[in-house]
């Protein structure tokens, strides 16, 4: 691992540092933008109990007033509703989020993978190929590099959960976090596998963006989306292992 890291980053050390930082800031700010916009809209939609057309009146003795604790419970119920609306409002921007995530992952991974792929490129040019282990260890290292991006993705959601939605069950925010994390994982594996296997930048860009756009627009806001993304990442990893294995066996 140390050797791979040293070899692939010998010329591009500071470029890699800069790339990961840039990608983390990109992801942090786009998620913050979408989350801030969505929580504001969700609090207007979900808490729309201000009488706009006029307050209803009656004569005294016609209806009993509720106890003060009722309103404390009702406030929590409104916050629960806002939490549900928040998750689906954020996911309704899936096109924006998945394209920015895809580009950020490309920015973060290319300085590292650029040198690494040199050993795998060449089905086309019949160069010597490197051992299978290097590819898989490289994948692990790449996932390690984008670990800050996962955390950057969660910062704004944690901010919303703490400052806006404290005291209610946050299943919707957890689901949103799961969807975004599995999306980031899928995009990272897709970029790594296309670039490491075929060594084609254009192919990596087209394949990843197609995967992100075609899929994210269709998938609903639910746990099945997480399973779909995880399944695709597992499939891509399996495909990569099979390809490396064939290369190794000299097929």
């Amino acid at each position: 691992m140390k050797a791979i890291l040293k070899n692939s980053l010998s010329d591009y050390l500071w470029v890699e540092v800069l790339a990961v930082v840039l990608a983390a800031v990109m992801i942090g700010s786009i998620t913050a933008y979408v989350a801030a916009d969505s929580i504001y809209k969700a609090s207007i939609i979900g808490g729309s109990i201000t009488p706009i057309l006029g307050a209803p009146g009656q004569l005294s003795g016609q209806g009993a007033e509720k106890a003060p604790s009722y309103y404390a419970h009702h406030y929590l119920a409104v916050k629960e509703r806002i939490t549900g609306i928040f998750g689906s409002l954020v996911w309704s921007n899936s096109g924006l989020i998945s394209s920015v995530l895809g580009i950020a992952v490309m920015v973060a991974l290319f300085p590292f993978v650029y040198r690494l792929r040199a050993s795998f490129v060449p089905l086309l040019f019949r160069e010597r190929s490197g051992p299978v282990g290097v590819g898989l260890k490289g994948l692990l290292l790449a996932l390690f590099f984008i670990l800050p991006l996962f955390l950057a993705l969660s910062f704004p959601l944690a901010f919303v959960a703490k400052n806006w939605l404290s005291g209610v069950s946050l299943s919707s925010v957890l689901l949103l976090n799961g969807i975004l994390w599995s999306l980031l994982l899928m995009l990272a594996i897709s970029i790594y596998s296309t670039y490491a296997l075929w060594g084609r930048l254009d192919l990596a860009v087209v394949f990843t963006l197609l995967l992100a756009f075609l899929l994210s627009g269709k998938l609903p806001f639910g746990w099945e989306t997480v399973w779909a993304y995880l399944g695709i990442s597992a499939g891509l990893t399996a495909g990569m292992v099979v390809a490396f294995q064939r290369r190794w066996m000299g097929v």
Partner: peptide
């Protein structure tokens, strides 16, 4: 470095955009 910068971006962005 990346965690600090992204946390800053997130907190300023949340305050600015909501």
């Amino acid at each position: 470095f990346s965690l600090t910068l992204s946390a800053l971006a997130a907190s300023f962005g949340m305050a600015y955009w909501s």
